[in-house]
């Protein structure tokens, strides 16, 4: 990696100030994407602002909301009793990310801010109609994801927490890239206060998206049969050496059915 200044501020205000003061500075959460990018010299920040000391990790359950601090790592999310009981789809999603080492370092806030088109969390956040809280505002999931590696965040804006309204049912199914084990197709299904929402990650050229046709079919009949005949068009889907757009379109149907069947049984 290239040389950079390293800062570890002790407060959110200081971290934002550092970012505001230096457009070339970059924030470091868990680093599970950022550090490899630095090692490959694909990014040359002037400074790396480590968010580890901002007190942004932890999970609180209150009424019908679960709030997850932005710096909470995957293993904490996967093993949290409230999440297991109330949003099992999110719990299983976190437990399938990367390997043990990655799950102890990677964070939900880091993943969301990066918005990798094959990352898992965006599907949970979008399907659950979660709200992304930042140092300055609240952003609804529908407004947050704006295309691959693109979000509604300002360059100096930091996610502080993610608020999940607890859904009645939830499940995640993931068809893994055989090499990287990222999602080739990930489908998160949630039946919650905002109705039934189906979010697809890994497949879309523009990153995570909602499958409206499935959502309306499931609204009246929350069962795998309700979406059995829905064909997802391949237009706008990714293709690579592992999976063509047509194959991804097919997998969306398979994974969605499995996720719905699992959620319905919960």
């Amino acid at each position: 990696m290239y040389d950079f200044a390293y800062q570890k501020p002790g407060s959110l205000a200081d971290a934002v100030k550092l970012l505001k003061g230096d457009p070339e500075a970059k924030a470091l959460a868990g680093g599970m994407t950022f550090i490899p990018v630095l090692k490959q010299r694909l990014n040359k920040p002037s400074a790396v602002i480590d968010l580890a000391k901002l007190g942004l990790s932890g999970i609180t359950a209150s009424g019908n909301t679960i709030t997850i601090g932005a710096m909470t790592n995957h293993v904490t999310i996967a093993t949290n009793a409230d999440i297991k009981a109330k949003i099992p789809g999110l719990s299983e999603m976190a437990s399938w990310i990367g390997d043990t080492q990655v799950r102890h370092r990677g964070t939900m806030g880091g993943s969301l801010a990066n918005n990798d088109p094959s990352a898992c969390y965006p599907a949970a956040v979008l399907a659950c109609d979660a709200t992304i809280k930042t140092d300055r505002r609240s952003i609804k999931a529908d407004d947050f994801f704006q295309g691959m590696f693109t979000t509604a965040l300002e360059p100096d804006e930091l996610i502080t927490s993610i608020e999940f309204p607890v859904p009645e049912k939830s499940a995640y199914e993931k068809f893994r890239n055989p090499a990287s084990r990222y999602a080739i197709v990930g489908v998160f299904v949630a039946k919650g206060p905002a109705g039934v929402r189906v979010a697809i990650t890994g497949a879309g050229q523009g990153g995570v998206f909602r499958h409206k046709e499935m959502e309306s079919a499931l609204a009246s009949n929350f069962s795998a049969d309700a979406i059995a005949n829905i064909k997802t068009p391949a237009d706008g889907l990714n293709g690579d050496i592992h999976a063509s757009a047509e194959y991804r379109a097919h997998l969306i149907g398979v994974m969605a059915k499995r996720a719905v069947a699992k959620a319905a049984g919960r």
Binding site: N177, A179, S180, Y182
Partner: peptide, 11 residues
């Protein structure tokens, strides 16, 4: 080389 890393070459 498209499969130039363990992200794309499946061991």
């Amino acid at each position: 080389l498209v499969s130039g890393s363990l992200m794309d070459y499946t061991m």
